[in-house]
Design a protein around this nucleic acid. Structure first.
Length: 310
DNA sequence: CCTATTTGACCTAT
DNA sequence: ATAGGTCAAATAGG
Protein backbone atom coordinates (compact mmCIF):
# COMPACT_ATOMS: atom_id res chain seq x y z
CA UNK A 1 0.00 0.00 0.00
CA UNK A 2 0.98 3.49 -0.51
CA UNK A 3 1.76 4.16 3.06
CA UNK A 4 3.80 1.15 3.74
CA UNK A 5 7.42 1.15 2.78
CA UNK A 6 10.20 -1.24 3.34
CA UNK A 7 12.14 -0.82 6.49
CA UNK A 8 15.33 0.00 4.72
CA UNK A 9 13.81 2.82 2.79
CA UNK A 10 13.98 5.67 5.25
CA UNK A 11 17.73 5.34 5.40
CA UNK A 12 18.00 5.85 1.69
CA UNK A 13 16.55 9.32 1.59
CA UNK A 14 18.74 10.15 4.53
CA UNK A 15 21.83 9.01 2.74
CA UNK A 16 20.73 10.89 -0.32
CA UNK A 17 20.30 13.98 1.80
CA UNK A 18 23.74 13.49 3.30
CA UNK A 19 25.22 13.25 -0.15
CA UNK A 20 23.37 16.32 -1.28
CA UNK A 21 24.51 18.26 1.74
CA UNK A 22 28.06 17.26 1.06
CA UNK A 23 27.71 18.21 -2.58
CA UNK A 24 26.21 21.50 -1.56
CA UNK A 25 29.08 22.21 0.78
CA UNK A 26 31.64 21.33 -1.84
CA UNK A 27 29.94 23.58 -4.35
CA UNK A 28 29.93 26.37 -1.79
CA UNK A 29 33.63 25.86 -1.26
CA UNK A 30 34.18 25.99 -4.97
CA UNK A 31 32.27 29.21 -5.16
CA UNK A 32 34.41 30.87 -2.53
CA UNK A 33 37.48 29.50 -4.24
CA UNK A 34 36.34 31.06 -7.49
CA UNK A 35 35.53 34.29 -5.78
CA UNK A 36 38.94 34.41 -4.16
CA UNK A 37 40.92 33.68 -7.25
CA UNK A 38 38.85 35.67 -9.70
CA UNK A 39 37.22 38.26 -7.57
CA UNK A 40 33.55 38.97 -7.30
CA UNK A 41 33.33 40.79 -10.55
CA UNK A 42 30.41 39.19 -12.26
CA UNK A 43 31.82 39.97 -15.63
CA UNK A 44 34.98 38.03 -15.13
CA UNK A 45 33.53 34.59 -15.11
CA UNK A 46 29.82 34.71 -15.68
CA UNK A 47 29.41 31.26 -17.16
CA UNK A 48 31.28 29.52 -14.38
CA UNK A 49 29.58 31.49 -11.67
CA UNK A 50 26.24 31.08 -13.24
CA UNK A 51 26.81 27.40 -13.48
CA UNK A 52 27.92 27.20 -9.91
CA UNK A 53 24.89 29.07 -8.70
CA UNK A 54 22.72 26.73 -10.62
CA UNK A 55 24.46 23.75 -9.13
CA UNK A 56 23.94 25.21 -5.69
CA UNK A 57 20.32 25.86 -6.52
CA UNK A 58 19.93 22.35 -7.70
CA UNK A 59 21.32 20.98 -4.48
CA UNK A 60 19.08 23.23 -2.47
CA UNK A 61 16.03 22.28 -4.42
CA UNK A 62 16.81 18.60 -4.09
CA UNK A 63 17.23 18.98 -0.37
CA UNK A 64 13.99 20.90 -0.18
CA UNK A 65 12.19 18.20 -2.04
CA UNK A 66 13.57 15.48 0.15
CA UNK A 67 12.79 17.42 3.28
CA UNK A 68 9.50 18.69 2.05
CA UNK A 69 6.20 18.26 3.78
CA UNK A 70 5.00 16.18 0.95
CA UNK A 71 2.73 13.69 2.60
CA UNK A 72 4.18 11.00 0.44
CA UNK A 73 7.50 11.69 1.99
CA UNK A 74 6.19 12.01 5.46
CA UNK A 75 4.74 8.61 5.16
CA UNK A 76 8.11 7.20 4.44
CA UNK A 77 9.34 7.46 7.95
CA UNK A 78 8.18 5.05 10.59
CA UNK A 79 6.80 2.35 8.50
CA UNK A 80 6.98 -1.34 8.92
CA UNK A 81 8.41 -3.74 6.49
CA UNK A 82 6.05 -5.30 4.12
CA UNK A 83 7.28 -8.68 3.19
CA UNK A 84 5.71 -11.29 1.14
CA UNK A 85 3.77 -13.97 2.89
CA UNK A 86 3.66 -12.14 6.18
CA UNK A 87 0.75 -9.95 5.42
CA UNK A 88 -1.01 -10.32 8.69
CA UNK A 89 1.82 -9.43 11.03
CA UNK A 90 3.70 -7.10 8.77
CA UNK A 91 0.69 -4.93 8.50
CA UNK A 92 0.64 -3.91 12.11
CA UNK A 93 2.12 -0.49 11.78
CA UNK A 94 0.49 1.73 9.27
CA UNK A 95 -0.14 5.31 8.54
CA UNK A 96 -2.93 5.03 11.04
CA UNK A 97 -1.45 4.05 14.31
CA UNK A 98 -4.38 2.06 15.60
CA UNK A 99 -5.33 -0.11 12.79
CA UNK A 100 -6.77 -3.32 11.73
CA UNK A 101 -6.19 -4.79 8.35
CA UNK A 102 -9.28 -3.11 7.04
CA UNK A 103 -8.43 0.22 8.58
CA UNK A 104 -5.26 0.40 6.63
CA UNK A 105 -7.04 0.24 3.35
CA UNK A 106 -7.16 3.45 1.51
CA UNK A 107 -4.25 4.93 3.35
CA UNK A 108 -2.89 5.91 0.00
CA UNK A 109 -3.05 9.47 -1.08
CA UNK A 110 -4.10 10.24 -4.54
CA UNK A 111 -1.30 12.08 -6.12
CA UNK A 112 -3.09 14.89 -7.78
CA UNK A 113 0.03 16.79 -8.58
CA UNK A 114 2.22 14.08 -9.87
CA UNK A 115 3.02 14.21 -13.50
CA UNK A 116 1.23 11.96 -15.87
CA UNK A 117 1.58 11.32 -19.52
CA UNK A 118 -0.18 9.04 -21.88
CA UNK A 119 0.96 6.94 -24.73
CA UNK A 120 -1.28 5.43 -27.33
CA UNK A 121 0.05 2.36 -28.93
CA UNK A 122 -1.32 -0.40 -31.02
CA UNK A 123 1.26 -3.05 -30.48
CA UNK A 124 2.97 -4.74 -27.62
CA UNK A 125 5.68 -2.79 -26.06
CA UNK A 126 7.87 -2.70 -23.05
CA UNK A 127 8.82 0.60 -21.60
CA UNK A 128 11.92 -0.75 -19.98
CA UNK A 129 10.48 -1.03 -16.53
CA UNK A 130 9.13 -3.94 -14.61
CA UNK A 131 5.46 -3.55 -13.84
CA UNK A 132 3.19 -5.50 -11.63
CA UNK A 133 -0.52 -5.48 -12.09
CA UNK A 134 -2.43 -4.59 -8.97
CA UNK A 135 -5.90 -3.90 -10.15
CA UNK A 136 -8.44 -3.78 -12.87
CA UNK A 137 -11.45 -1.56 -13.03
CA UNK A 138 -14.45 -1.11 -15.20
CA UNK A 139 -14.61 2.52 -16.17
CA UNK A 140 -17.85 4.33 -16.57
CA UNK A 141 -18.92 4.72 -20.18
CA UNK A 142 -15.89 2.85 -21.29
CA UNK A 143 -16.17 -0.32 -23.20
CA UNK A 144 -12.93 -1.72 -21.92
CA UNK A 145 -11.65 -2.12 -18.40
CA UNK A 146 -8.63 -0.28 -17.15
CA UNK A 147 -5.66 -2.25 -15.92
CA UNK A 148 -3.53 -0.83 -13.15
CA UNK A 149 0.17 -1.45 -12.80
CA UNK A 150 2.74 -0.34 -10.31
CA UNK A 151 6.48 -0.56 -10.51
CA UNK A 152 7.77 -3.92 -9.37
CA UNK A 153 10.32 -2.06 -7.27
CA UNK A 154 7.72 -0.20 -5.28
CA UNK A 155 8.62 -2.04 -2.13
CA UNK A 156 12.23 -2.91 -2.60
CA UNK A 157 13.24 0.48 -3.88
CA UNK A 158 10.30 2.63 -3.03
CA UNK A 159 9.59 3.44 -6.63
CA UNK A 160 6.29 5.25 -6.89
CA UNK A 161 5.71 4.95 -10.58
CA UNK A 162 2.41 3.53 -11.69
CA UNK A 163 0.59 3.25 -14.94
CA UNK A 164 -2.75 2.15 -16.22
CA UNK A 165 -3.57 0.68 -19.56
CA UNK A 166 -6.89 0.81 -21.29
CA UNK A 167 -8.10 0.00 -24.72
CA UNK A 168 -9.20 3.01 -26.65
CA UNK A 169 -12.87 2.76 -27.32
CA UNK A 170 -12.79 4.46 -30.68
CA UNK A 171 -9.81 2.45 -31.76
CA UNK A 172 -10.09 -0.89 -30.01
CA UNK A 173 -6.91 -2.09 -31.59
CA UNK A 174 -5.01 0.53 -29.69
CA UNK A 175 -4.23 0.91 -26.06
CA UNK A 176 -3.71 4.01 -24.06
CA UNK A 177 -1.14 3.80 -21.35
CA UNK A 178 -1.10 6.50 -18.73
CA UNK A 179 2.05 6.81 -16.71
CA UNK A 180 1.81 8.37 -13.28
CA UNK A 181 4.83 9.49 -11.41
CA UNK A 182 8.40 8.87 -12.22
CA UNK A 183 10.61 5.95 -11.54
CA UNK A 184 13.06 6.26 -8.72
CA UNK A 185 14.14 2.70 -9.05
CA UNK A 186 17.23 1.51 -10.74
CA UNK A 187 16.54 -0.98 -13.42
CA UNK A 188 18.85 -2.32 -16.00
CA UNK A 189 17.29 -2.07 -19.32
CA UNK A 190 17.70 -4.58 -21.99
CA UNK A 191 19.66 -3.73 -25.04
CA UNK A 192 17.63 -1.82 -27.50
CA UNK A 193 15.47 -3.92 -29.67
CA UNK A 194 13.03 -2.21 -31.76
CA UNK A 195 10.56 -4.64 -33.03
CA UNK A 196 10.21 -7.60 -30.94
CA UNK A 197 6.82 -8.82 -31.62
CA UNK A 198 4.76 -8.91 -34.67
CA UNK A 199 1.92 -11.26 -34.74
CA UNK A 200 0.90 -11.85 -38.32
CA UNK A 201 -2.52 -12.83 -37.19
CA UNK A 202 -2.89 -9.66 -35.31
CA UNK A 203 -4.26 -6.92 -37.51
CA UNK A 204 -3.23 -4.37 -34.99
CA UNK A 205 0.37 -4.86 -35.87
CA UNK A 206 -0.20 -3.36 -39.23
CA UNK A 207 -1.70 -0.20 -38.03
CA UNK A 208 -0.07 1.46 -35.19
CA UNK A 209 0.58 4.79 -33.76
CA UNK A 210 1.74 6.12 -30.52
CA UNK A 211 0.48 9.22 -28.94
CA UNK A 212 2.39 10.70 -26.13
CA UNK A 213 0.77 13.47 -24.29
CA UNK A 214 1.85 15.17 -21.15
CA UNK A 215 -1.16 16.15 -19.12
CA UNK A 216 0.78 17.52 -16.29
CA UNK A 217 4.07 19.02 -15.50
CA UNK A 218 7.24 17.39 -16.52
CA UNK A 219 9.46 18.58 -13.82
CA UNK A 220 12.83 17.35 -14.77
CA UNK A 221 14.85 15.66 -17.33
CA UNK A 222 14.38 12.28 -15.87
CA UNK A 223 10.92 12.34 -17.24
CA UNK A 224 12.10 12.80 -20.72
CA UNK A 225 14.71 10.17 -20.17
CA UNK A 226 12.13 7.83 -18.89
CA UNK A 227 9.85 8.70 -21.68
CA UNK A 228 12.50 8.12 -24.21
CA UNK A 229 13.59 4.96 -22.57
CA UNK A 230 10.23 3.64 -23.51
CA UNK A 231 11.46 3.39 -27.01
CA UNK A 232 14.76 1.89 -26.20
CA UNK A 233 14.10 -1.31 -24.51
CA UNK A 234 11.37 -3.41 -25.80
CA UNK A 235 10.36 -6.87 -25.00
CA UNK A 236 7.35 -8.93 -25.60
CA UNK A 237 4.67 -8.30 -23.13
CA UNK A 238 3.05 -11.18 -21.43
CA UNK A 239 -0.49 -10.05 -21.79
CA UNK A 240 -2.44 -8.97 -24.77
CA UNK A 241 -3.51 -5.78 -23.11
CA UNK A 242 0.04 -4.68 -22.95
CA UNK A 243 0.80 -3.04 -26.23
CA UNK A 244 4.11 -2.82 -28.00
CA UNK A 245 5.82 -0.18 -29.98
CA UNK A 246 6.52 -0.58 -33.62
CA UNK A 247 8.86 1.03 -35.97
CA UNK A 248 6.08 2.52 -37.99
CA UNK A 249 4.43 4.12 -35.04
CA UNK A 250 3.68 7.74 -35.09
CA UNK A 251 4.75 9.45 -31.99
CA UNK A 252 3.08 12.54 -30.85
CA UNK A 253 4.08 14.33 -27.79
CA UNK A 254 2.05 17.05 -26.26
CA UNK A 255 1.57 18.71 -23.00
CA UNK A 256 -0.22 21.79 -22.03
CA UNK A 257 1.86 23.53 -19.46
CA UNK A 258 4.42 25.95 -20.69
CA UNK A 259 6.52 25.41 -17.65
CA UNK A 260 7.01 21.88 -18.72
CA UNK A 261 8.41 22.82 -22.02
CA UNK A 262 10.58 25.31 -20.29
CA UNK A 263 12.07 22.49 -18.38
CA UNK A 264 12.52 20.35 -21.36
CA UNK A 265 14.01 23.02 -23.46
CA UNK A 266 16.16 24.59 -20.89
CA UNK A 267 19.82 23.81 -21.40
CA UNK A 268 20.22 24.38 -17.72
CA UNK A 269 18.21 21.35 -16.86
CA UNK A 270 20.47 18.78 -18.26
CA UNK A 271 21.97 16.89 -15.38
CA UNK A 272 22.70 13.31 -16.11
CA UNK A 273 21.62 12.27 -12.72
CA UNK A 274 18.30 12.90 -11.22
CA UNK A 275 17.83 13.49 -7.50
CA UNK A 276 17.43 9.80 -7.00
CA UNK A 277 20.58 8.86 -8.75
CA UNK A 278 18.63 7.24 -11.47
CA UNK A 279 20.89 6.72 -14.38
CA UNK A 280 19.37 8.08 -17.49
CA UNK A 281 19.06 5.77 -20.33
CA UNK A 282 20.39 8.21 -22.78
CA UNK A 283 22.21 11.42 -22.90
CA UNK A 284 22.50 13.78 -25.74
CA UNK A 285 26.19 13.29 -25.84
CA UNK A 286 26.16 9.57 -26.28
CA UNK A 287 23.64 8.56 -28.73
CA UNK A 288 20.58 10.70 -28.61
CA UNK A 289 19.44 13.46 -30.81
CA UNK A 290 17.54 16.40 -29.66
CA UNK A 291 14.35 17.27 -31.38
CA UNK A 292 12.50 20.24 -30.06
CA UNK A 293 14.28 19.86 -26.81
CA UNK A 294 13.32 16.29 -26.33
CA UNK A 295 15.92 13.63 -26.54
CA UNK A 296 15.15 11.04 -29.08
CA UNK A 297 16.71 7.65 -28.88
CA UNK A 298 19.15 6.56 -31.50
CA UNK A 299 16.64 4.32 -32.98
CA UNK A 300 16.01 3.66 -36.57
CA UNK A 301 12.40 4.48 -36.84
CA UNK A 302 12.22 4.04 -40.57
CA UNK A 303 9.15 5.97 -41.54
CA UNK A 304 8.32 7.22 -38.14
CA UNK A 305 6.85 10.56 -37.68
CA UNK A 306 7.69 12.40 -34.56
CA UNK A 307 5.55 15.22 -33.61
CA UNK A 308 6.38 17.17 -30.56
CA UNK A 309 4.03 19.90 -29.66
CA UNK A 310 4.88 22.28 -26.88
C1' DC B 1 8.06 -22.18 -2.15
C1' DC B 2 8.01 -17.91 -4.21
C1' DT B 3 6.19 -14.52 -7.22
C1' DA B 4 2.57 -12.70 -10.15
C1' DT B 5 -2.32 -12.15 -11.25
C1' DT B 6 -7.21 -11.90 -10.26
C1' DT B 7 -10.88 -9.77 -8.18
C1' DG B 8 -14.05 -8.04 -4.68
C1' DA B 9 -13.75 -4.82 -1.01
C1' DC B 10 -12.44 -0.61 0.55
C1' DC B 11 -11.14 4.33 0.48
C1' DT B 12 -10.58 9.04 -1.38
C1' DA B 13 -11.59 12.76 -4.42
C1' DT B 14 -15.00 15.05 -6.73
C1' DA C 1 -23.32 9.48 -4.04
C1' DT C 2 -20.35 7.96 -7.33
C1' DA C 3 -16.23 6.88 -10.05
C1' DG C 4 -11.76 5.81 -9.95
C1' DG C 5 -7.62 4.09 -7.57
C1' DT C 6 -5.62 0.79 -4.35
C1' DC C 7 -5.41 -3.07 -1.17
C1' DA C 8 -4.97 -7.70 -0.10
C1' DA C 9 -6.84 -12.57 0.13
C1' DA C 10 -7.24 -16.15 -2.92
C1' DT C 11 -5.45 -18.32 -6.66
C1' DA C 12 -2.38 -19.61 -10.45
C1' DG C 13 1.96 -20.65 -12.36
C1' DG C 14 6.95 -21.67 -12.56
Amino acid sequence: MECCWPENLPSKPKRAIDQLIEGHQLATQLRSLLSNSLGDDESTLPPAKDLLLKILNSFQNSLMILNSDDPDHELMSPIPTKTHGTKSESSEGSCRSISTLKDRRGCYKRRKNTQTWTKDTATLMDDGHAWRKYGQKVILNAKFPRHYYRCTHKFDQGCQATKHVQRIQEEPQKHRTTYIGQHSCRTFLKAPELILHEDPSDPTTTDSSILLSFDNTISNKQDSHFLISSFQSIKQERKEEKPAIRSDDIITHTHNQSSSSDYLLSPDRTPDLDPFGHMPVLSESDNGDVISGVIVPPVDFDDDVFSFNF
